[in-house]
């Protein structure tokens, strides 16, 4: 985003809203197993909170995740998901069989841990991809202007 289209009203609203949107995203991801929510919804909320600031303030905001960091975020999310899936193989379980590693005595506690880990991975991947697609569509559209 080279030119922001924020006015004083938009900027005041974004300043007030963005921290709460990001906090709500963290809540939605972490409570995905006990209330409505989950990785996809939380990831989209996280990306929306960052895009709100990016849209109102433009490049000078210095408060954003750039395309390079967004790509790293998306890759780490997918790798976290696949890595959690691979972990039980070391203890003779099948792929994504969370209760194979002998971490806790209660297999249900291990399944909750695996579920939350996967939700976090999905949230990182979704947030990174949405930020990346937005950057690609909004920032790099005209090659003539951006040297």
């Amino acid at each position: 985003m080279k030119q922001p289209f924020g006015s004083a009203v938009l900027e005041a609203a974004a300043r007030l809203l963005a921290p709460f949107v990001l906090l709500f995203a963290a809540y939605v991801v972490s409570h995905g197993h006990s209330s409505p929510g989950g990785g996809f919804q939380g990831g989209v909320l996280f990306a929306a909170g960052l895009l709100l600031v990016k849209l109102t303030r433009g490049d000078p905001s210095q408060w954003e995740i750039g395309p390079r960091a967004a790509l790293v975020l998306a890759c780490s999310g997918v790798l976290l998901f696949a890595g959690i899936g691979l972990l039980p193989l070391a203890w003779g379980g099948s792929y994504l069989d969370y209760d194979a590693p002998p971490l806790f005595a209660d297999p249900v506690a291990e399944r909750v841990l695996g579920t939350v880990g996967i939700e976090v991975g999905v949230a990182l991947a979704v947030a990174g991809i949405i930020l990346l697609v937005f950057d690609a569509l909004a920032g790099w559209g005209e090659p003539e202007r951006s040297a």
Binding site: S34, G38, G85, R111, V112, T115
Partner: peptide, 21 residues
């Protein structure tokens, strides 16, 4: 079986985790 109150999450992340991957 999964400890998840939210059954949508239980299906998405546990029973059908491979789908989600």
């Amino acid at each position: 079986e999964t400890g998840a109150h939210n059954l949508v999450t239980a299906v998405l992340a546990d029973y059908r985790g491979y789908d989600t991957l």
